[in-house]
Simulated scan of single mutants.
Amino acid sequence: MSVESRLAEIGITLPEAAAPVASYQPVVIANGLAHVSGQLPFIDGQLVTGRLGEDVTLEQGTAAARACGLMIAAQLKAAGVLERVERVVKLGAFVNSTGDFTDQPKVANGASDLMFEIFGEAGRHARSAVGVPVLPLGAAVEVDAVIALRAD
């Protein structure tokens, strides 16, 4: 089954791929891997901002991480490689959080669970989930990815 068919089956519509906010490429393909730059969480066209442990709940943070995952898929589609995904190798989740917030892994599950929903077993991946004091544009979460691609 194609990835596009799978997305339709589970009722997911990908957002438009966001333009870079600085001097970088959203996706770089090298040696069979797609390196996806950190993606910010947009829900209904609005950037999710704030800090976990302060003014963003765990549920909102998890939804934000899921939105980052959707943007990762959107960037893969824009790069023309969504249908070539062989395996999600690694996600890196950065959570804008207070010093005493320790549920970064639960927040990151929003993106991780989405990868499994979309890609099945090929969506299971290695991951890091870290707390940071600030993210670009005040975003609550940022997620980047390394994706293995099938040959053309």
Rank of each mutant, 00 (worst) to 15 (best):
E4D: 12
S5W: 00
S5T: 13
S5R: 14
L7Y: 07
L7S: 09
A8V: 11
E9F: 05
E9C: 01
I10F: 01
I10K: 01
I12E: 02
I12M: 02
I12F: 01
T13C: 00
T13F: 00
T13E: 14
T13A: 11
L14C: 09
E16V: 13
A17G: 04
A19D: 14
A19Y: 05
P20C: 06
P20T: 12
S23G: 10
S23I: 08
S23R: 14
Y24C: 03
Y24P: 07
Q25L: 12
P26W: 01
V28T: 14
V28R: 09
I29E: 06
I29A: 03
N31G: 12
G32N: 10
G32W: 07
G32T: 10
L33M: 13
L33G: 01
L33S: 03
L33V: 15
A34L: 03
H35E: 11
H35W: 05
H35F: 11
H35T: 14
S37K: 10
S37L: 00
G38S: 14
G38A: 15
G38F: 09
Q39T: 12
Q39C: 15
L40M: 15
I43M: 04
D44L: 04
G45M: 08
G45L: 09
G45R: 10
Q46M: 07
L47I: 13
V48D: 00
V48H: 00
V48A: 04
G50R: 06
R51M: 13
G53K: 06
G53M: 05
D55E: 05
E59K: 10
G61R: 07
A65C: 05
R66C: 01
A67V: 06
A67E: 02
G69I: 07
G69N: 05
L70H: 07
L70N: 01
A73V: 08
A74P: 05
A78N: 13
A79R: 05
G80Y: 08
G80L: 05
L82F: 04
E83W: 06
V85A: 01
E86Q: 15
V88I: 15
V89H: 07
V89T: 04
L91E: 03
L91W: 06
L91M: 07
F94L: 14
F94M: 12
V95E: 01
N96F: 03
S97R: 08
T98N: 04
D100V: 10
D100N: 14
F101A: 05
T102D: 04
D103S: 14
D103F: 07
Q104E: 15
P105F: 04
K106Q: 13
K106T: 14
K106D: 10
V107E: 00
V107M: 01
A111M: 05
A111Q: 06
S112R: 15
L114D: 00
F116H: 10
F116R: 13
F116A: 13
F116W: 08
G120F: 07
G120A: 13
G120N: 13
E121M: 09
E121W: 02
H125L: 08
A126N: 13
A126D: 15
R127N: 11
S128F: 12
S128V: 14
S128N: 13
A129D: 11
G131N: 10
V132Q: 10
P133D: 15
P133F: 07
L135T: 12
L135Y: 12
P136L: 09
P136R: 12
G138L: 08
G138Q: 08
V141T: 14
V143S: 02
V143H: 03
V143L: 02
I147A: 03
I147L: 03
A148S: 14
A148L: 07
A148N: 06
L149T: 09
L149S: 08
R150I: 03
